[in-house]
Simulated scan of single mutants.
Amino acid sequence: MLTSHRKSEILALLKRQGQVEAKALATHYAVSEDTIRRDLREMAAEGLLQRVHGGALLASPAEAGLAERQRIAIPSKVQVAAAAARLIAPGQIVILDGGTTCAELARSLPRDMPLTVVTHSPTIAVALAEHERIEVVLIGGRLFRHSMVAVGAAALEALSHVRADLYFMGVTGVHAEAGFSTGDYEEAYIKRALSAQAAETVVLASNEKLGVASTYKIGNLGMAASLVVDGAPSPELGAALASAGVSVVSQ
């Protein structure tokens, strides 16, 4: 079999199963594990999958650039944002992450709701500028342009003084085994720090982020109290979320 055909079949299998094992693939195609690992390595370089020990997971499409991500799954993100907005009560202190789904949540907030929003995203802060009853606390630091958020030591130090009711966290992957993940090391670190400063973490995930993984793990599924989605997760992911005590919120 041609390498290109084998890679196409591996990708199709990944889309059906969510993960593959190198040893099983080598047996199936009657080739060495080194050959399969080379295939997986090349496919990972193309952004088609995320390599893990012993195999691979389906890569998240949400690692694309900001402009492209703003065009991905717009109806799903709008539905997720609307469902998330209903979890917020007047007078709460809420941390809003960066990213396109959290930007939709900012736009969904009622203009007459008294609220304090803490964010390390200048985009989120600008989106809330005309909400006169929302107090906006903007955390500064080094700008990570992929998600338009502040990262680094200055951001972490400022966040250490915040105590919030809810943290709405954006991710690029939600996977039964890999947990919550994102495509940048520093961003994963600051998401963990934000989660530690809130009584509850609520993860927002449009459809394309379910059952896939990115390079850097934020944490296990159990770090979240709730996962807001548009529709139902796969049976495997749903079972993993239930086992971790995560409630699933949908439209």
Rank of each mutant, 00 (worst) to 15 (best):
T3A: 12
L11Q: 12
L14M: 08
Q17K: 14
Q17P: 00
G18L: 06
G18C: 06
A24E: 12
T27Q: 15
V31I: 04
T35G: 04
R37Q: 10
L40S: 04
A44I: 09
G47L: 09
L48G: 09
L48S: 14
G55L: 05
G55H: 03
A59P: 01
S60M: 09
A64C: 13
R69K: 11
I72D: 04
K77Y: 01
A84N: 05
R86L: 07
L87G: 01
G91I: 05
I95V: 14
L96N: 00
L96M: 07
G98Y: 01
T100H: 01
T101P: 02
A103V: 07
E104K: 06
E104Q: 11
L105F: 05
L105A: 02
R111N: 12
L115Q: 04
T116Y: 03
A125R: 01
L128C: 02
A129P: 05
E135M: 11
I139S: 05
L143I: 14
L143N: 06
A154C: 11
A154F: 13
L156F: 10
A158Q: 13
S160A: 15
H161R: 12
V162W: 02
D165M: 07
F168G: 00
G173T: 10
V174E: 02
V174S: 08
H175R: 05
A176K: 07
E177T: 14
D184E: 13
I190W: 02
A193W: 10
S195C: 13
A196E: 14
Q197F: 10
A199Y: 10
T201N: 07
T201S: 12
E208P: 11
L210K: 01
L210P: 00
G211Y: 01
Y216S: 03
I218Q: 05
L221Y: 04
L227R: 02
L227F: 06
G231Q: 02
P233Q: 02
A239R: 15
A240T: 04
A242R: 13
V246A: 02
V249K: 05
